[in-house]
Design a protein around this nucleic acid. Structure first.
Length: 493
RNA sequence: GGCGGCAUAGCCAAGUGGCCAAGGCAGCGGUCUGCAAAACCGUUAUUCCCCGGUUCGAAUCCGGGUGCCGCCUCCA
């Protein structure tokens, strides 16, 4: 089976053939550290996290590089406003970024380089571009001359001539072509600077990615990723810089994730509809957020709303409810060495085969341009079969039955590990979710317990109207009671 | 103006030439229950925006139309 990837560069799904067999080099544009991460960052991060995990699942040795931009106009602006050093701003938002990403259950990349640790490399690259006549200097600024690079526009699929026709372009008399971009920017008074052959200044936006990708992955590498908004101009410019300097192909496969909309509107500061990762994670379990993201193909637009998150939560709860049932059935037993498929028959064997089929279908879906939506569909299909199997085998304590359940659980964990889902202990999952909901609603569990006791007394006296009254009053607060043989338990809707 | 994307059930969303058009949410029916809820099971699109065309056969390819959206400016 071949893994296929949609390559923005060719606008087609292509079989993935790594540069070096069994290895993948992957560079993803990280954040500019000037503000907290929002749900759009979360989507991109989760998507590439899953791609990273899937490559590893498929047995590749992956080098995953994700950079931090820690010098930039927006950082400088923020530092000025707060009256602190840019390093402080960058450090603060890198820290917050890491907290958010850890909370979302992301695997840390192999390397997370920072722009300011690579200034020398950037200067060398700019010098190389000047030597090749692809760049020019004006008053301490260095610009890339897009007209001198033949392939300019190949990633975004636009031609310089066409763009010039209608675009709004700021008048910058220093540039020879409006689409020339700055490689090195001279420092104004009060701005951070580094010494360079062109005087004190700082790097332009795009140059860091050319330098850091090359440093960790080589001049040509397998995969470059980021949000679709980065296609132009950022990634286009990276190609111009890197290929212009080396004369070799830059990234071979370009992967771009789609945008997040908020309640059907574009997320933007002016609309004030930016949801930060922190806010969302206060409301929802990280796996709910991941499931929400991964239920849509990564290249499609996804519409974020509280409603959509709630739907994802309902779906995730079903998985944990089943895993809980499986855990309860299995108990602590985990020795099934003597069991094999040959010991199975009937419905045990049938379900066992379905489990094995799931693995194959999962890989087939993921191989098709990381189709997590389809893969998750297969998982839910198997989940239903698992519930049927659990029903049919109620009361069965045989070791062949427990063996099948044990395998089911481990397959769910194995596939879940690729998606970053279903990894919590089910008991712990429900405990945490209940606590989260109580806190959100500011309800004290002692009060609930008290009412339940009162209702238990009423029920013992067959005072159904009083019992129903209590149930109803709790239901109004979103507390649902469940009467079971061991007493009454409750949950939050 | 240029480039590109999308349109599939009440909602979300897979599917890009051929088994009954995945899956999730919601709804409905059932199991269970003092009644419920939760959970579970079952069920919900003769049809894939419209009109033509290609084909033995199309949601899937081609042409036209309509609607929505993104990028071209910092942006994941």
């Amino acid at each position: 089976m071949t893994l296929k990837i949609y390559n923005t560069l060719t606008r087609a799904k292509e079989p993935f053939v790594p540069l070096e067999e069994g290895k993948v080099g992957m560079y993803v544009c990280g954040i500019t550290a000037y503000d907290v991460c929002h749900i759009g960052h979360a989507r991109s991060a989760v998507v590439f996290d899953v791609i990273y995990r899937y490559f590893k699942y498929r047995g590749f040795a992956v080098t995953y590089v994700k950079n931090f931009t820690d010098v930039d106009d927006k950082i400088i602006e923020r530092a000025r406003r707060e009256g602190v050093d840019i390093a402080e701003i960058a450090a603060r938002y890198i820290r917050k970024h890491n907290e958010d990403m850890d909370a979302l259950g992301l695997v840390r990349p192999t390397v997370t380089p920072r722009a300011t640790d690579n200034i020398k490399g950037m200067i060398r690259l700019v010098e190389r571009l000047l030597e090749k006549g692809l760049a020019y200097t004006v008053d301490g600024d260095v610009f890339y001359s897009v007209e001198r690079f033949e392939g300019y526009g190949k990633l975004s699929g636009r031609l310089l001539d066409e763009m010039m026709a209608g675009a709004r372009i700021e008048v910058d008399t220093k540039k020879r072509n409006p689409y020339d971009f700055v490689l090195w920017k001279s420092a104004k008074e009060g701005e951070p600077w580094w010494e360079s052959p062109w005087g004190r200044g700082r790097p332009g936006w795009h140059i860091e990615c050319s330098v850091m990708s090359q440093r960790y992955l080589g001049e040509t590498f397998d995969i470059h990723g980021g949000g679709e908004d980065l296609i132009f101009p950022h990634h286009e410019n990276e190609i111009a810089q890197s290929e212009g300097a080396t004369g070799k192909p830059f990234a071979r496969y370009w992967i771009h994730n789609g945008f997040v909309k908020i309640n059907s509107e574009k997320m933007s500061k002016s609309l004030g509809n930016i949801f930060t990762v922190q806010d969302v994670l206060k409301q929802f379990h990280p796996e709910v957020v991941r499931l929400f993201i991964l239920q849509t193909h990564y290249r499609s637009i996804i519409d974020f709303s509280e409603e959509a998150l709630k739907e994802a939560r309902s779906a995730l709860e079903r998985v944990y409810a089943t895993l809980l049932a499986v855990d309860e059935r299995i108990g602590g037993k985990d020795e099934f060495d003597e069991m094999t498929e040959q010991n199975l028959s009937g419905r045990h064997k049938d379900f066992f085969h379905r489990l094995q089929a799931l693995q194959g279908r999962f890989v087939e879906a993921m191989d098709d341009d990381f189709n997590t939506a389809r893969a998750i569909g297969y998982i839910f299909e198997t989940l239903r079969q698992m519930n049927v199997y659990l029903d049919e085998t109620a009361g069965d304590g045989s070791s062949r039955h427990l063996f099948v359940l044990y395998r089911a659980r481990s397959i769910f964990h194995q596939l879940g590990k690729v998606l970053g889902l279903f990894l919590e202990d089910p008991v712990e999952y429900f405990r945490r979710e209940r606590a989260r909901e109580l806190q959100k609603r500011n309800i004290d569990s002692d009060v609930i317990e008290g009412l339940i006791e009162e209702r238990a007394r009423a029920r013992a006296e067959r005072d159904w109207s009083r019992a129903d009254e209590i149930r109803e009053s709790l239901r109004e607060k979103g507390i649902l009671l469940k009467d079971g043989p061991g007493g009454t338990t409750w949950m939050i809707q």
